[in-house]
Design a protein around this nucleic acid. Sequence first.
DNA 1: CTCGTAAAGCTAATTAGATTAGCTTTATGG
DNA 2: CCATAAAGCTAATCTAATTAGCTTTACGAG
Lengths: 188, 188
Amino acid sequence: MPRAGLNRRDVIAAAAELADEVGFQQLTMGLLAQRLGIRTPSLYKHVTDLADLKHGVAIQAMAAVGEEVRDAVAGRSGRDALTALLGTMRSYAMTHPGRYAAANSTLRTGPDDPLLAASNRVIDSISAALRGYGIADADMVHAIRTIRSTIHGFALLQETDGFQWSADPADTFDWMIQFIDRGLKASR
Amino acid sequence: MPRAGLNRRDVIAAAAELADEVGFQQLTMGLLAQRLGIRTPSLYKHVTDLADLKHGVAIQAMAAVGEEVRDAVAGRSGRDALTALLGTMRSYAMTHPGRYAAANSTLRTGPDDPLLAASNRVIDSISAALRGYGIADADMVHAIRTIRSTIHGFALLQETDGFQWSADPADTFDWMIQFIDRGLKASR
DNA sequence: CTCGTAAAGCTAATTAGATTAGCTTTATGG
DNA sequence: CCATAAAGCTAATCTAATTAGCTTTACGAG
């Protein structure tokens, strides 16, 4: 039988895909091995354990979000930048639910965790998007955290079926962007 | 040996407490049984399985949040009500992390899920808190969702160590309340 | 007071997943 | 052509959930 010839990157990439299909919580060594056409124990040649695998997916996902968000925000400012930023994040969360969950529900292992660096890159883009609003330095941290919280909560609530009513979540999303935009302009 | 004399309510209450101590994800049948002084299989006399147990904790927690929030908002309006509302939720999330996670990360089993009724009661209180702002009916859904998203995301980010920087999350929380208050007044 | 029964426990056994130990095979550089 | 490290594999162990079937206690009806 021919050899699969996998490496860590391949394994984590496959895990990320699988997570989007079955949910991050449901990601299992057995399922992943099956998907890759190898036996479960063979996975341990590439990752140390399930936690390591999931952590790897989280880093991969956070890095991907970082790139998409950076590109989306580039060259825009003010409300335009804000819309691009939030829209990109929401879109990522919807097309890659497993990866998004991975990125935002994984604990940092320490101060030198690459996941930290990856999420800092995302934060940099948020910061860049807010630049045009002329927010005072002292308020920037709070503004960034508020925006992260909002997106994050929105994605999560939508995922867990938290929005039961009729109104289209997309409409709420647009409303939210306008709400934040107005708020940021006012807090100048 | 004397009998413990447990019922479903006792079991779920103990599970809720345990979840606050070890984390909702780490809640396990074995740990709970140990805590209650019985053997693991005996738990199945009170709950059908782990999913049922966790679902029960979620309902219990959401109901508790509902009551606290109702009491906090009662008799207040405008920014005062908003502060009470958000403060209560944040406080609940901090003192009962396991229960909070249960309430907000558990999937509804269907349209007749008691969890749905419990979360609707919370939403009613949010709605009541916003009444004084004179928000148009058409915007109310969006406003409520925005507030839920914000709180939810804030709690989650704080929990997963998402706020790495120096600034005190409590300050961010206050800033957020002011931000939302101003925004709601403006969207009248 | 005594008996029948349902509820509440228990032990033993099964199953699913993760993980470890130790063996085998394939590529590849020398 | 060979040595060896990497990539797989099988077999075995461990933990947690769950099921089956037996035992014991509380408690109301006679």
